[in-house]
Write a protein that binds this DNA or RNA. Sequence first.
RNA 1: GGCCCUAUCGUCUAACGGUUAGGACAAGGCCUUCUCAAGGCUUAAAUCAGAGUUCGAUUCUCUGUAGGGUCACCA
Length: 455
Amino acid sequence: MEKFSKKIVVRMAPSPTGNLHIGTARTTLYNYLFAKRNGGKFILRVEDTDTERSTKEFEQNQLDGLAWLGLTYDEFFRQSERTDVYVSYVKELIESGHAYISKEVVTEVGQRTEVIRFKNPNKKVSFEDIVRGTVEFDTTDLGDFVIARSIEEPLYHLAVVIDDHEMGVTHIIRGEDHISNTPRQILIQEAISAQRPIYAHIPLILDSDRKKLSKRKHGAAVWIDTYKLEGYAPSALLNFFAFLGWNPGGEREVYSLAEMTDIFDLERVQKGSAIFDIEKLKWFNKEHLKLLPEETIKKEIKNAVEHSQKYLSKHWNLTGEILTKSWKIMFERISNWKELSELVDAGEFDYLFEQPALTTSLLFWKDEKDALITKNHLVKVRDILSNLSDDNFSAENLKASIWDYATESGRGSVLWPLRTALSGKEKSPDPFVLGEILGKKETLGRIAFAEEKLS
RNA sequence: GGCCCUAUCGUCUAACGGUUAGGACAAGGCCUUCUCAAGGCUUAAAUCAGAGUUCGAUUCUCUGUAGGGUCACCA
């Protein structure tokens, strides 16, 4: 069920002058979704005509980032490899009188004495934009703008128009910051008799100060790499970016790339800019992580734990058994994998690996600072638990066997010392879960250790 | 400053002339509970302002205001 009679062709045209940017990723996503939704073709075209600032490293970073996100393309071009095409157009433009070689008054170092300028017909240009409707400009104030440094060195506007024409691009989906570039590109299109593509200028992503996200101001926070490193899932990033400026209606928010591909619609793209909210991203990420298979989650958890400084310096061992029993309590406490490394470094899970050092004050429940009473509770609990077999040492069974005693004696009075004896922390998972994770031998050992402290 | 774009809870948004203006994030409260976390329930929170058009405007028009983008021999 295709919406357009002609096969649609879209393109993303990143400039390799920096690492893959959040905004670039989102615009790529919108192009990808639109192409897939309509059975079209998606072209990736590297715009590296600025040889001063473009580098292979940046290009690679951008390609790697898009691959990581899962945004694949059907065709790939590099403008630096298409000089011949541009040269012939420039010559033609000059011959036809649409452009001319201009003698320049040099006022700055590095400035050329001769450039190629477009002969501006100085007229009103209006175009239809899918998200904004009719937009009108008077091109008079643009003057005779420069379209090439020389015959062999086309500038952005020229190269874009020629490529979009040559590649049969039917829809141009790009950031709102390109709106003001559109009239001069339309002028060039008309000069080379190219068909005008359909435009869709999507809203920008702003920071919390409502300013454009910039490398200068936000540093690494604008790079996709940063989110990859912090342990965000590609699908969560995609979902979050898509919903910054678009939503399918209805109340569902969590979608995979494939699911969005089925329902994406440019008509529902927002006009106003959206603010990047890291808290919402974290929420999306957690939702997407929950969707991962259990085995994958365990693998990621093991990886994150083993990458913490603390783990490395302590030579701890996250055995399969501990991992199997404890992955849930770790997973519950994080929204991305890096947070887990940080929690481990902060000592949040020390009790999984070693007998915690205990102080008597930690073992006292609220104002019950009587060592003997506290110790007696622990002795009693240890006695009860020693009757459980290794195989039955589950959280469920632990709770069942201790619960009545705890309720009779005051749950806090019994459970608090028990839990702190096992975890060594004021805050931790409940003692039953801890007991299951630690196993019978270790659990009884830690209780006995606490009893010693109270003697 | 010129030109252009935009305007619903703090944030992301729903509503395509008629709704008690809905949902999500974040925040607060409650439940659960020995403490966390997770989970469940819940509260507060918005149509930028003023004129029109209309029986009726968040929705259409105009003006104002505010915010943003852009003004390169970068892309």
